[in-house]
């Protein structure tokens, strides 16, 4: 009796201890994002104090040795490259995912799906190498510019977005697809009006996931985008995204005043951009869902 009781107490205690431990782990992990934000803010405070924010964000002059830190070219570089990647990757991914989910014979899907999952795991350096190889293929060279960066980035994002959206499309219940077919809709009409609509939240999540990766991608883009600190005005111009700015200059920044602070501000700006994109996508989605659900 004694023994049984003490065992029970022991088990209860173990349960409680495990719960506490899990709670601590969860709180720690959930607060990492806040730590990162605060850390970057503290470190970039010197430059934020020394220069007005509007000048930092909208000035085009980047000359650290003269103390001029204008992030505009880099912000635009990131937006151009990511935007172009989106324009290329989104239609290709969504159409491919729809085909795999709604049209493709089982055999094709069984072949393509694992391949996509494998490709989604390939390191970005390899995509960058491919970019360089493809660019140096002679003759049809498009040069190191926004277009090259956008294409490489698009190809990097496509497997992730396609694979996740395909899974989402396949969760749409068969009943409602057949309900649409049964009133005489074609398969495409069913896909367009019913499947896409029913899976909007999941697809939005897939797109946000893919694009968060695109915003923050460093190596692959760095290798092909040209790295010229001027805001691009066409896709054939070179660009210099924020990620590349940080990666290229981090080692040599110590000697120049405010330089390290500026680079950490670049990291902060990047973080804020990704956050804003995430939150905006979530809000837009919530709004659309309220109208439909």
């Amino acid at each position: 009796m004694e023994k049984g009781l003490s065992r029970l107490i022991g088990r209860r205690w173990a349960d409680l201890a495990a719960t506490r431990l899990m709670f601590v782990a969860t709180v720690f992990v959930a607060s990492v994002a806040v730590f990162i934000g605060i850390g970057l803010l503290l470190k970039s405070w010197p430059i934020l104090e020394a220069r007005p924010l509007s000048e930092l964000l909208f000035s085009s002059v980047w000359c650290p040795s003269r103390g001029e830190f204008g992030f505009y070219p880099f912000i635009m570089g990131t937006l151009w490259v990511t935007g172009l990647a989106g324009i290329i990757a989104l239609p290709l991914s969504l159409l491919s995912a729809l085909y795999l989910a709604e049209y493709a014979p089982n055999k094709v899907r069984a072949l393509v799906k694992p391949a996509l999952d494998l490709l989604a795991g390939i390191p970005s350096v390899v995509y960058g190498i491919w970019g360089i190889l493809a660019l140096s293929l002679g003759g049809i060279s498009i040069g190191f510019n926004v277009l090259a960066g956008g294409i490489v980035l698009a190809i990097m994002v496509i497997p992730v977005v396609t694979s996740v959206s395909e899974e989402v499309f396949r969760t749409v219940p068969r009943d409602i697809k057949e309900a649409s077919l049964a009133v005489g809709a074609t398969r495409w009409e069913t896909a367009k009006h019913v499947v896409m609509r029913a899976s909007l939240p999941g697809v939005a999540a897939a797109v946000v996931l893919g694009f968060s990766r695109a915003f923050g991608e460093t190596m692959a883009v760095l290798m092909v985008v040209g790295n010229v600190a001027r805001a691009p005005s066409s896709v054939m111009d070179p660009a210099y995204p924020l990620t590349a700015l940080i990666a290229n200059n981090y080692g040599e920044m110590m000697s120049v005043p405010l330089y390290d602070s500026a680079l950490l501000l670049a990291a902060l700006v990047l973080l804020v951009m990704v956050l804003v994109f995430n939150v905006a996508a979530r809000l837009a989605l919530a709004r659309v869902q309220r109208r439909w659900a």
Partner: peptide, 11 residues
């Protein structure tokens, strides 16, 4: 998940 790896590096 969405935070760029270079930001992790800088942090």
């Amino acid at each position: 998940w969405g935070i760029p790896s270079i930001v992790y590096g800088a942090f």
